[in-house]
Design a protein around this nucleic acid. Structure first.
Lengths: 199, 199
DNA sequence: TTCAAATTAGGTCACTTGTCCTAATTTGAG
DNA sequence: CTCAAATTAGGACAAGTGACCTAATTTGAA
């Protein structure tokens, strides 16, 4: 006798609005209008706005986890998997161009609001960091896998931010190409190191 | 008979609060409390909150312009000047760690608010882009100076975002070192190209 | 079908927001 | 000093916010 559909609709719409308009700039009224329920109805599903934020972060964690896991079991090489990550900038380009990176912008907003959910949002970055680290380990870079993961995360964050600021499609494409060049060099180095038997 | 001091105090405090708490999350009351004037007094200096934002963006443009110009006339090499830009991540690290990049986060917030001042804020990035482009030209890279400028801007944006997210000092230091390595490689390439052109 | 639980609609509440008004005070040119 | 202009304080105002309540309706297990 539990209606999960309405709850999921609220979270889904909130997820979208928090991304497009920001957490603080999104009101209960905004969400209610899109979900087509009355404002007062919220209290039955979520006690506070922070509870909705919590659910949205959880949803994003699940969604990204699912995506990354799918990439991992589709049996491609670590190199191709990392390329899939880089290609988010293109495949999700239309939205990034307009609203930036969903993870980076949320983290940044919550940091400024000094919001309690700041740490939870941070786990979104940690998810990608750990996943990328695993790919670099698979690429034969156990020693500096984490630094490489952070570096690539950083590069894609920067590209997303400037894509949003300048709206320049050529720029993103160029940065994506640079990242793939870098990735090939990283892979080549690790092959060389394996041959030398030296780090 | 014009009191510019109060106006400048308002803009200065607003600049700081917009950075630390975000534009929307900063209220007239917040600013008034720090400037130590009454709330109603604002209307005499700024008709709307958007007018204050306009003034803050103008101030940031002037401040950054002054800083970049100073670096340019201090008679150092283009390489050293670009290093000064990279080193912002260290010299301004305490604030970036807590609040992110003042330019990137403002641009991102205004994009989500769909705010009219979005374009004005964009000029802050353009300022750095043009300045960096000039430095790369001075480094002998006329052909791809703009792409190099955007690339470095992108790298430093990403580093600032992840510094804010993970608060990891070692990470920023590493990224700063990577950027300087990259810069040296770029300079070396341009020397090589110059050598090829003039045998 | 029955009926208690789940869900919903509609509204109230106290509070904050940006905007704007008016009256008092301060300032400085003549 | 004089006095009009500049500046300031204090508050009013409507609109919007998140939180919360109650009563009506819907749902589905027994």
């Amino acid at each position: 006798m539990v209606n999960r559909a309405t709850r999921e609709a609220i979270v889904s719409v909130a997820d979208d609005l928090f991304y497009r308009k920001g957490f603080e700039h999104t009101s209960f009224a905004d969400i209610a209008a899109l979900v087509k329920i009355s404002r007062g109805n919220f209290y039955h599903h979520f006690k506070t706005k922070d509870d909705i934020l919590e659910a949205v972060i959880q949803k994003r964690l699940t969604d990204r986890h699912t995506m990354l896991e799918r990439w991992e079991v589709e049996g491609r090489t670590a190199m191709e998997r990392i390329c899939s990550f880089i290609d988010i900038l293109i495949s999700n380009g239309d939205k990034i161009k307009l609203y930036g990176c969903p993870i980076g912008t949320l983290t940044s907003e919550l940091a400024k609001l000094n919001h309690a959910a700041r740490e939870d949002a941070g786990r979104l970055f940690m998810l990608f960091r750990a996943w990328l680290r695993r790919q670099f380990v698979a690429l034969g870079r156990e020693a500096d896998a984490d630094a490489l993961a952070m570096h690539l995360l950083s590069r894609s964050q920067g590209a997303a931010t400037l894509f949003n600021a300048f709206q320049d499609q050529d720029f993103v494409q160029r940065e994506v190409d640079y990242m793939k060049d870098w990735l090939r060099a990283v892979a080549a180095e690790s092959f060389k190191a394996a041959g030398d038997q030296q780090p």
